[in-house]
């Protein structure tokens, strides 16, 4: 009898410790790690951009198709002033689990940054640095600013977050039906999970391209304090 009690209590203590450690890992350690990785991604991007200074003379005669984004690699930095003045995250190509640990993920097959179509990006709401933790605070008129090293793209959000189900792939269509857009244009879609810690729904935000400017012209107005 005593052996059973002892074994069971030791098991419980062990399992309890494991659970506490795991919670600490999910809540705290993934964030610590992700912040470090995302900073590395941004640093490598900025280094890369510094090394190839504006190689886009844009031969107007033959606009050759741009090289596709390489999978799992960062290609842009996103700024959303509403989520914090210092909020900036790398955008990587692909929405795989491993990619989303390093930053926001661009849905392959959706439009390129700034092009006609729907530039769609997914990000974690919780864990891995909580990039989209304050997603529900986004409002109509908020700026979503991106840069690819040569151009600043300022998108403007058109409505408060829209709640939908995970199978609703229509939201990343070139002209998403429920967004209120009727004509083809240069759109942006952000997706994250809803509720905060669950996976039963998704939150969606749509924006349209408001303005662009070359990086030489300095930071866009939305990013100036």
């Amino acid at each position: 009898m005593r052996v059973i009690v002892r074994t069971v209590s030791e098991l419980f203590i062990t399992v309890g410790t494991l659970i506490v450690l795991f919670v600490a890992y999910v809540l705290f350690w993934t964030g610590v790690r992700a912040d470090r990785v995302m900073d590395d991604q941004i640093d490598s991007l900025q280094q890369q951009w510094a090394q190839e200074p504006a190689v886009t003379p844009r031969p107007s005669a033959s606009p050759e198709p741009p090289t596709p984004y390489s999978k799992g690699k960062p290609f842009a930095i996103m700024y959303i002033p509403r989520l914090g003045f210092t909020w900036n995250k790398p955008v990587l190509e692909g929405t795989g689990t491993g990619t989303l640990k390093k930053g926001l993920g661009h849905y392959p097959g959706t439009a390129r940054l700034g092009q006609t179509g729907n530039f769609s990006v997914a990000g974690h709401r919780r864990t891995y640095g909580d990039p989209f933790k304050d997603f529900p605070r986004l409002r109509r008129g908020d700026a979503v600013v991106l840069t690819d090293g040569t151009t600043w793209f300022t998108y403007r959000i058109d409505q408060a977050p829209y709640r939908t189900v995970p199978t609703d792939v229509e939201v990343i269509d070139p002209v998403p039906r429920k967004s209120g857009y009727t004509r083809p244009g240069r759109y942006l879609t952000l997706t994250t999970c809803e509720p905060e810690w669950g996976h039963s729904h998704r939150l969606i935000v749509w924006a349209h391209l408001d303005s662009t400017q070359p990086v030489e012209a300095g930071r866009p107005k939305a990013l100036r304090r």
Binding site: F22, T127, F132, T191, C193
Partner: peptide
Amino acid sequence: FPWAEPLLPFNDVTVDNQ
């Protein structure tokens, strides 16, 4: 933990589950 964490639902942030 890195192996166990993706089994939880916090990773489902996309609309097409790719």
